[in-house]
């Protein structure tokens, strides 16, 4: 009874904030609503007894991914009134894509058969008295090890791609090279000159580029 009410409440907040993500005028508010979405999804996981997934969702999506979203949204000075002008023009295309997806989903749902045992296992995330972290690990690292490795490889490729895109030779900037600084000796940069009265001293050749 109370569990059902709580489920309804949190799913309502989840859906409501999902709508707000796409409809709020301020992009920062959108990201904040997205975070609210994630947290409510985590609560739903928690209610289903999947505490590991719930906390990993919070750590990965809220603690890292959404922070980067926020970072980007705050840094990019996106002019949203300009974007909104385009809505009229692109709305039919978006609607068409949405319709196609919806029809495809409908086709799938019509032929969907739920396995007879599955319905009873809906709220039993872990078999027996295993903690669900252990249960998840024992499936992920045995039966699905190749898929798991593949997922890791895909992420690695994405990561390397991001690094390659941003890696540039920054010769123009004045970055500090600690090794060069430490290996610099007084003799390399300093020389004592006896200046004659009235004539001054000539600058040694190796210092000229420094001046």
């Amino acid at each position: 009874m109370i569990a059902n009410l709580a489920f309804d409440l949190f799913s309502a907040i989840l859906l409501g904030s999902a709508v707000m993500v796409v409809s709020s005028r301020n992009p920062v508010h959108s990201v904040l609503f997205l975070i609210l979405c994630f947290i409510n999804a985590a609560i739903l996981f928690l209610m289903a007894g999947a505490e590991f997934l719930a906390l990993v969702l919070v750590i990965v999506y809220v603690g890292a991914v959404a922070v980067l979203f926020m970072f980007v949204v705050m840094m990019l000075d996106v002019d949203f009134s300009e974007l909104r002008e385009g809505v009229q023009r692109y709305a039919p295309i978006g609607a068409a894509v949405g319709l196609v997806l919806f029809v495809e989903l409908a086709f799938v749902m019509v032929n969907w058969v739920i396995a007879p045992g599955a319905a009873g296992m809906r709220l039993l995330p872990a078999p027996g008295n295993m903690t669900n972290t252990a249960a998840l690990g024992s499936v992920l690292y045995t039966n699905y090890i190749f898929l798991f490795q593949l997922a890791g490889a895909v992420l690695l490729v994405a990561m390397i791609g991001a690094i390659v895109l941003t890696l540039r030779d920054r010769k123009r900037g004045k970055t500090q090279d600690i090794d060069i600084q430490h290996s610099r000796m007084p003799a390399d940069t300093l020389s004592m000159v006896n200046a004659k009265l009235g004539a001054g001293a000539s600058v040694p050749a190796r210092h000229e580029d420094a001046l």
Partner: peptide, 15 residues
């Protein structure tokens, strides 16, 4: 069960 993850999650929200 997942106490340490809980602390990690909360401290990652601190940002």
């Amino acid at each position: 069960n997942v106490g340490i993850l809980y602390i990690f999650a909360i401290s990652s929200l601190g940002v």
